[in-house]
Design a protein around this nucleic acid. Structure first.
Lengths: 325, 325
DNA sequence: ATGAAAGCGCTAACAC
DNA sequence: GTGTTAGCGCTTTCAT
C-alpha cells in the first residue's frame, strides 16, 4: 500500500497526468468517457491529491496561522474554535501557536509561520516590537492587540463594557464598588479602557474608585490570599467589577467562603464561564462575531479590496449577562 | 520585496544552490569563507527556507494533526495546549481540527490531514467507523477514545477516579449520593468506567446508586431546569458525583441558589475549573502527563520501536482535588 | 479533447 | 570543498 500519485492514476486510467489534473480541478474540456475512466481509477487506487505539491506550485497553502497566548484560556479557546470553524468552511486549515506570552516563542512561531508559507496570520498575542510584524509582509489581523499601526484590530468595546458593568452595580445599590484587575501597573497607567470605563462611570456619580490589583503572574493560591487581604482591608466593599472572568471566579469563591455579600460583574462571558459560574454576572464579548469580522477583514486583504487606514479598529458591542439567580 | 529563494542567495553569494543548502543544513564540508559568504547573503536578503518545498522533497512535513471535539472545552483546550507545547519543542507544527463531534466534519478533516501529508494524528474525537482510521495508514494515537483495536489509547484511570470521588463523599458522611452524568443511555449501559466505579463503590458499602442523566445536547437553561427537577424529586441528596466538571458547575449553581447543601465532586480538574470554581472538589486528570505519553508513543511509532498489541492502553493515575473551603 | 514538457523551491546523488 | 543534475507531486502553457 504505497503512496498513490497522480501519475499512477494516469497510468491506471491510460491517460496523461494532465488529464487527471483536469478532472481533479474541473478545468478544461473532458469527454465524459475519459472523466469516468479517471474517476474510476481514483476510486480504485484510493488516490487523494498531495496538497504539499499543490501548494508548492500554486504559491498558496490555504493555511492560516493563529497566534494566541494560550488556548487553555477559555476566551482564546473559544476564539480559536470560532476562527477555525469559519476558516474550515472557507477551505482553510489552521496552524495553531500558543505563545504563552513569551516573546521568544512568539518570534520563533512567526518565523515558522512564514517558513510554512501561511496565507495569513491572526494574532491575539503581542510581545514583539511592532516592526517585526510590519516587515513580515503578510496579511495580518489582530484581535484586541496593537501590533503596529499597519495591522487592523478587531476588539469588543472595552470602555462601554466597563461602563455597563459599573452602572449595573450602581443600579443594584452597591455603595462601595471596587475594581479588581490583573493588569500590571503600567497598563493601568497607560489607560486600559476597562479601567477607564469604571473610573469615568463612578466619578460621574460621585463614587470613589478603588483599584485593586491581583497579579496574573502569581499562582492561584497567592491570588486567593491577595483577594482575601483586600477584602479584609476594605470590608465595606459590596460591589466589584473584575476585568476578567477568572478573577471574578476567584473573587466569588473567596467572598462566598468568607460570607461576604458582594455583587460581582466579570468580563469575557465565555460559554465555559457561564456554565461553570452561572451565578456571576459578566460582560460578554461577542467572540463569534469578532472571529467573523477578523476573517472578513482578512478575506478583504486577500481579495485586495481592503483599504487600510492607520490604526484601523473594528469595535464590536458587548452585552451584560445578568446571573440567573 | 519579492520572495527570496535559495537560488537568489546562491547567486548573491556567488556559489551554487547546493552549497547554500549545505550551509543551511550543516551537511558536508564547507570552508569557513564560503559559509560566511552564504550566511551574509542570507542575512542581507532576509532569506528563510520554504518549508513547503522541503516537505515535498523530504516526504515529511513535521506537521501533526490534532482532532478534538472542541478546544473551547477547557479539557480539550488544555490538552491541545500541552500537546502543542511539547510538539513545538520537538520541531513539530500543529494543525488543529474541531470536529464538534460531527461525523462528517471528522471524516472531512481526516481526509484533509492526509492530503496535507501530516506525519501523524492525535485524536480525541470519535464518530467514525473504526475501519476509516484503520486504513488511513498513518501514525495515530487516541486520547481516551477507542478508534480501533490498532490504535493505542492514552487515558486516565476513569474507574479509579470514580471510586475515589465516591469514597470521598462517603467519607464526608453523605447519606444519599447521586451520580450526575451527561452520557447518553447507551453509553451508560455499555459500561462507562466512571459510572461503574461509582456503582461498585456504593454497592460495596450498601448504598443505593442513583443515576441522573442530564443531556449534553440540551442548552444550558434546560440543563439547569433538569437538575432542579432532580433536586426536587430527590430532596435527600446530600452528595453528588458529576462525571464532568461542567455538570458539577451547573449542579453547584443550581443547588446553592436553592439552598441545597450538597457535597459535589466533579471530574476533569482543568486549571480553568479550579480557577472558576475553587469551592468544588474534583478528580483531576493528569492532562500534561497524558499529552507527554501520547507524544512519546507517537515518537515510538515514528522511530519504529513501538510494538503494538491490540487494544493497547496507557492508563495514568488521577488525583482528588479537595476544594479549599 | 488530450498530451509533452517545463517549473514551483528545495535536497541529494554523483561528479570533479 | 564545490557544482551539475535530477526529481519530490503537482499544474499549466503550448502544442496537436
Amino acid at each position: 500500500m504505497e503512496k498513490v500519485r497522480l501519475e499512477d492514476v494516469a497510468e491506471h486510467a491510460g491517460v496523461s497526468p494532465t488529464t487527471v489534473s483536469r478532472v481533479l480541478n474541473n478545468r478544461g474540456a473532458i469527454s465524459d468517457k475519459t472523466r469516468k475512466k479517471v474517476n474510476d481509477a481514483i476510486e480504485e487506487l484510493g488516490y487523494f491529491p498531495n496538497e504539499i505539491a499543490r501548494s508548492l506550485y500554486g504559491n498558496k497553502t490555504n493555511i492560516i496561522g493563529v497566534l494566541f497566548p494560550n488556548v487553555s484560556n477559555p476566551f482564546y479557546g473559544e476564539m480559536v474554535t470560532e476562527l477555525e470553524t469559519i476558516l474550515s468552511e472557507k477551505g482553510y486549515k489552521v496552524l495553531i501557536c500558543n505563545t504563552n506570552n513569551n516573546p521568544e516563542k512568539e518570534a520563533k512561531y512567526l518565523k515558522m509561520l512564514l517558513s510554512n508559507q501561511v496565507d495569513g496570520v491572526i494574532v491575539g498575542s503581542r510581545n514583539l516590537p511592532s516592526d517585526i510584524y510590519q516587515k513580515a509582509h503578510l496579511p495580518i489581523v489582530a484581535i484586541d492587540r496593537v501590533l503596529s499601526e499597519k495591522v487592523p484590530i478587531i476588539r469588543s468595546d472595552n470602555y462601554q463594557g466597563a461602563c455597563m458593568a459599573t452602572e449595573y452595580l450602581i443600579d443594584k445599590k452597591c455603595k462601595k464598588i471596587a475594581l479588581f484587575t490583573g493588569s500590571p501597573e503600567e497598563e493601568i497607567m497607560r489607560g486600559d479602557q476597562r479601567i477607564k470605563g469604571y473610573i469615568d462611570t463612578l466619578e460621574k456619580q460621585d463614587y470613589d474608585p478603588l483599584i485593586l490589583q491581583v497579579s496574573f503572574d502569581e499562582d492561584e493560591a497567592f491570588q486567593r490570599k491577595r483577594v482575601a487581604e483586600y477584602l479584609d482591608a476594605y470590608p465595606d466593599i459590596d460591589g466589584a467589577f473584575a476585568t476578567g472572568d477568572t478573577l471574578a471566579g476567584i473573587l466569588n469563591t473567596v467572598a462566598s467562603s468568607r460570607g461576604n455579600q458582594i455583587k460581582i460583574v466579570g468580563y469575557d462571558g465565555t460559554d465555559t464561564f457561564l456554565k461553570f459560574c452561572g451565578n456571576i454576572s459578566t460582560i460578554r464579548q461577542p467572540i463569534k462575531e469578532m472571529a467573523q469580522v477578523a476573517i472578513d477583514v482578512m478575506s478583504g486583504i486577500f481579495a485586495g479590496d481592503y483599504h487600510h487606514q492607520d490604526n484601523q479598529e473594528f469595535i464590536l458591542p458587548v452585552t451584560l449577562i445578568e446571573s440567573i439567580y
